[in-house]
Structures are given as C-alpha cells and as structure tokens.
Design a protein around this nucleic acid. Structure first.
Lengths: 358, 358
DNA sequence: CTGTTAGCGCGTTCAT
DNA sequence: ATGAACGCGCTAACAG
C-alpha cells in the first residue's frame, strides 16, 4: 500500500542505501544516479517515513514548544517567533525528504500535570529540542519533577531552552538547560511602580497573577520593593488581589479593590489582559481613566496600544525572545555567557496613567 | 545509554514481549508478572520509544493542528480547544506508556508553501489525524496540491478535519476529509450589514481581508448582497479596501476610505483586530464612534467586549468549534450528516454601532 | 561512487 | 499466560 524506500530503489534500479543517500544528501552520489532516483521518488510519490528514519538514525526532527495558554497572544507571539526559526524551509524541495525540523506547540493550559505529560511525550518522541516558555509553577515537588525530566531529556540529547522562564535552581537542573532567556520582570515592575509614584500616586492597588507562578512573584515583589522605598510598604498587602491571567480576573479584582479602598488612584495589573478587565470595572463604577484612576499593564501586547486610553505598560520583546529561543534550540546561535541572558523590560508610558488627583 | 524494553525485560526476568503487553495492556498478563514489570519500569525510569513503537505498530500518536497565525487569538482559541480534546490525559500514570496522543500545533503563517510543507512533515510522521483551521487560500493550483496531500494523508489512515475552513470542492478532496465544520461567514456578514442598513446607514465602507482567502470572499460577498438588496450595490466596490487580518491594515484602509468618501457613516471590518485599527484611525481623524461613524468587526474575540466603545461584531463559537474538531479528529464524535456541519455566526450588537447621523 | 549486511526498539504472530 | 522469532522502514558501517 504505502510506498517504501525499497520500492523507489527497485524502480530506480539502485540499492536502498543509494536512495537514502540521495535523499539525505550526505554522501556523494553520481549525478546520473541521483536523477534516476529523484525521478523514481516523484513517480511513486514517495514520502519518507519519519519514524523509521528517526529510529535508524537515532535522531528526531521534532522540536517541542511548551506554552501555558495558546489562546493568549503572549504565548502565541513567542511560539510563532520560535517556530519561524525552526520549521521554516523557505526554499523549494519541501515535498521530499530533508533536514526540516517539525516545530510543535504544546499547550499545557497552565497545568503542572500536563506539562509533565508533554515532556514525557516529547521524550518518548526523542525530541531534538524543547523550549519552555512563560512563568513556571513554584511548587517544589513539581519543579523537581520538571528538572528531573529536563535532565533526562538533555541526557538523551535534546537541547533544552527556557524562554521567559527563570533558570532552574535545582541540582541537576541547571546543567540540563542549554540556555535560559529570563525576562527582567523585576526591573520592569519596579520601573512601572516608580513611574506611578513619581506621578504622585500613593494608594496604588495591585492585581497580581496566580500565586504559585514565578512571573507573579517577581513582578509583585518588585512592586512591593518600590512601594517600600517610598515608605508605602504597609499598604501593599491590603491592596493586592491574586487571580488568573485573564480579563475577568482584572474585572473582579478591581471591584474588590474599590470596595477595600474607594479612594485608590491607581491600579497596576499583572499583565495587559488583566488591565483591560480592570479598566472595564473602573468605567462601570464611574471612574474615568486616567483622570480619576490610572491603570497600567505588563507585556505590551498588540492590543494595548489600541485600548482607550492606550495602556501604559512594560514592553517585553516577545517576538525577539521567541526567535532567539528558536535559534538556540536549533543550535544556530551560541548560548549566552553562563547560559543565562536577561531580556530587557522597558517602561512604555501611554495615556492610561496620569498625575494623581488633588 | 538509553534504557530499552529489553533492559526492562531482563530486570523483570521476563521476555520483551511480556513487557510490551503490560505496557499496552492489550493482552492478558498475570497480575504478579505485571507487578514485576511495572516495578522494573519504574526502577529503570524506562520511557517508551515513540518512533520504534509507531514503526512496529504502524500507527502514530501525533495529531497535527494547522493554523494560519498562532499569535492571533482567533486561531489560538480554536487550537487550544482542539488540543484539550486530544492531548489530555487527566489521570495518573502519565509517566509511562499509554494511548495518549500528542497534539501539535503547526503555524503556517498563512503561507501556502509552509502549509504544504507541514502537511508533508505530518504525513512523514504518519500522523493519526490532521485538523486544518481557518480560511483557505483560493489559488486553484494550491488548492489542488492541498487536496492531493489530504487525500494521501487520508489514504494513509489519517483522519482529516476542517475547522472554519470551507469543504474542499476538488475531486478526490471531498472524500478525503472526515468532517468539515464551516463557519456561517455568509449569514453572519449579511446580518451584520443588514443591521447597519436598518440603522439608516448608506455610505458603508468595508475593510476586507486578503483577496485570496475564502473567509474574505464569503464575508465580502454577503456584504455586497445585502447592499444590493438595499439598492446600494453600486457603491460597494469603491468603498472596499483589501488588506491582511491585522490592526495596521484596518488603520491604513480606514484612512484611505475616509479620503475616498469623507461622508461615510459606517466601517465594517474583516475581523475584530482590523476593526480596532479602524477605530484608531477614525479617532485620529476626529470622528467619534458611534456618533459620527459606526464600526463593526467579526469573530467576537475576547478583547472586543473591552474596546471603547464595545465592538458590535459577529460571534463565532471558536472554542466550541475547536473542541468539536478535536473530538472528530479523535473519532470520539460521529461525523455530521454529509460530513459537513455549519457553525452558526450570530450578530452581537454593542456600543460601536448606532443610528446614522442626520 | 555503489551494493551488502546489520541492526535501531518495539509489536506481533506463532508456538508452548 | 508467556517466550521465540520475525519484520516494520530506514541508516550506517563495511566492503568493493
């Protein structure tokens, strides 16, 4: 039924080995023979069997990209950029065999179990590389399990790259990853809160992400640091609410925060999506942005510039970081010194923040 | 180096065949033996080799999901929903072997070549199923190539599902797809334009998607039909501009349309993202929404409700459609009658549209 | 430059 | 209920 290498060999009147050599282009083959073989391939509509090839050569052309939420552009942008550096055979001849890698995006939905499951599945497929994007879950047991899996993956020859995820701190985990691109969440968050303080805000509420996430913690801690430096540290806890990274969370949390502190003059959100929800809640409560209340987000997703007013936020170069992660995974770029590179997070001031009232 | 089935067998003092049977759970195995085997698996940290397994069994556990733009939530939502029906082993035992499928998202970036390349890669991996999402490119040659590939994929045992893509019209293509979920783009677009007509609008501009896309054509044609039914068909061409499905396109196109017809009172956009760009352009030109100009989108992405004013649009049940596509791909749901199901597209009226001035 | 010979790691008969 | 043997489709040595 399905045509195999042997069929091609028979039709081209050569040995299977020769066909393999033509397809992989690693060994010298006479031009005339190569022609015959390629014609046979076309005639028969032959397609290489990936599994058999991978099994025999003990290498795979799969590259896994793990994301927490594929419906969130934050991850979509990084994944797309990474994939563009991996899957992309621009030229012709795409129909035949060749060294193209298959970049596959795996959506964990933020679930630790699924993260591990995907890692196992990837390991089972003997993935050539694995890219983990976004914040990690901070449960020690889970971290250990992930570190162990990554170590095994690396042991099996897979290149492991972290993108927007802090380097593993566990024993055995550090050596496993080829490179880590860490967003400067701390610096960005600090600059953002300082910006608001400079504008005269004092009652600043904070809508944080899920508690157990590294991203959440880093951003929140820096916010607190900045507040403490301004002598406002005591109020932070009472004016902080945690929730998922979605619009609804921003909406609900903001209503709650308004209840706690009706006189608040600024809301800092865990990310832009959450900030949008916060804006909706504030407007519903009759507060105008930024006249009554300033709002700020994080990430600078494309829609942030289109919000009304445009969102003040912290820009993360998601596309660049994703692309770099892709190149690192392909071994097309040298790992940064120490294996860790910090990705800048720059403050972007737009219309949603203004001087505090009064 | 890497531990194989044989190693496990040796440690458990059984034959490789027995280990295989335990792992796959398809044949009766004595409870005691099974225990020994499982313990050996754990002890050795054995992980099944996916390629070898697939090769021997002539089946694969890969399911491909093709998307045009992974950074666009339109696709992210569908892909995530589909994946949730495929990859999801909720229970325990995720570490071992098992029938879990690996759902992999492939980003074509809207490029026909990459679409074909991914299809080939998937074919090479002997994918168990393939889901194609979103509008198709209308180039006949490309369509034929895709149809041929899909036919071959199906021939090789892969289940092919279309989600948000119109059924193939080509010979041999129709039989290849197991099921097609087609969005009611025509009906939705018609209702949307009728809504504006009812509000008294006459000079309605249209920012269409890329010319060669089915989605674009269907939505535009229905818009034209509605306009013609209202005796306004003549103006349609002059007030239509094509562009990609992104914010910038909406922005640029709207500026151009305002130049062509300064007195326009409504702008219909190809989708919500484009609509946002249109809003930005209008505001920049000093037009208020919806007092001066009404704006409408399509898709009802999450951020549409948060725009200011909230966007009138056409709701596509992306999550539901994606999930259904996932189930169809897994064979967990019977194909609809005739292999084609129409997914409803309902008008959602919000604040961005209002009665025409004057 | 090309053909021959062995496996890669596992599933699956066929025996027992 | 279990083991032995064969083959899935391909690549990689080794000859020649």
């Amino acid at each position: 039924m399905t045509v195999t290498l042997a069929d091609v060999a028979a039709r081209a009147q050569v040995s299977p080995a020769t066909v393999s050599r033509v397809l992989n282009g690693n060994y010298p083959v006479a031009a005339a023979t190569r022609e015959r073989v390629l014609r046979a391939v076309d005639d028969l509509d032959y397609v290489l069997n990936g599994q058999a090839s991978a099994l025999a050569a003990a290498t795979s052309d799969l590259v896994g990209i793990l994301v927490n939420d594929i419906a969130d552009p934050f991850f979509g942008i990084m994944a797309g950029a990474a994939q563009s550096q991996i899957g992309g055979p621009e030229g012709a001849g795409a129909g035949r065999a060749g060294g193209e890698k298959l970049a596959i995006v795996c959506n964990t939905g933020g679930s630790p179990e699924r993260e591990l499951t995907y890692l196992t599945l990837l390991q089972r497929q003997r993935a050539a590389a694995v890219i983990l994007t976004g914040g990690a879950i901070e449960d020690p047991e889970h971290s250990a399990a992930v570190a162990a899996k990554l170590a095994k993956l690396a042991d099996g020859g897979a290149r492991v790259v972290l993108c927007g995820r802090p380097p593993l701190e566990l024993p055995g985990g550090g050596e496993a990853v080829a490179a880590a691109l860490a967003f400067d969440n701390r610096g960005g968050a600090r600059r953002l809160t300082e910006h608001l303080l400079t504008l005269g805000h004092q009652r600043i509420a904070y809508v944080a992400g899920p508690v157990e996430r590294t991203t959440t913690r880093h951003r929140l801690e820096s916010h607190r640091d900045a507040m403490e430096a301004a002598g406002l540290g005591d109020a932070v806890d009472a004016l902080t609410v945690h929730g998922p990274y979605d619009r609804r969370s921003g909406y609900d949390a903001t209503l709650e925060l308004l209840r706690r502190e009706p006189a608040l003059t600024a809301v800092v959100a865990a990310n832009d999506t959450v900030a949008l929800g916060a804006c909706a809640a504030l407007r519903e409560q009759g507060r105008s942005i930024p006249d009554d209340v300033s709002v700020a987000g994080f990430d600078d997703l494309p829609f942030s510039a289109d919000a009304m007013p445009a969102l003040t936020t912290v820009r993360l170069p998601l596309h660049e970081a994703g692309a770099r992660a892709g190149r690192l995974a392909m071994g097309r770029e040298a790992a940064p010194a120490g294996g860790i590179a910090t990705v800048p997070a720059d403050l972007v001031v737009r219309g949603s923040t203004a001087a505090a009232r009064g």
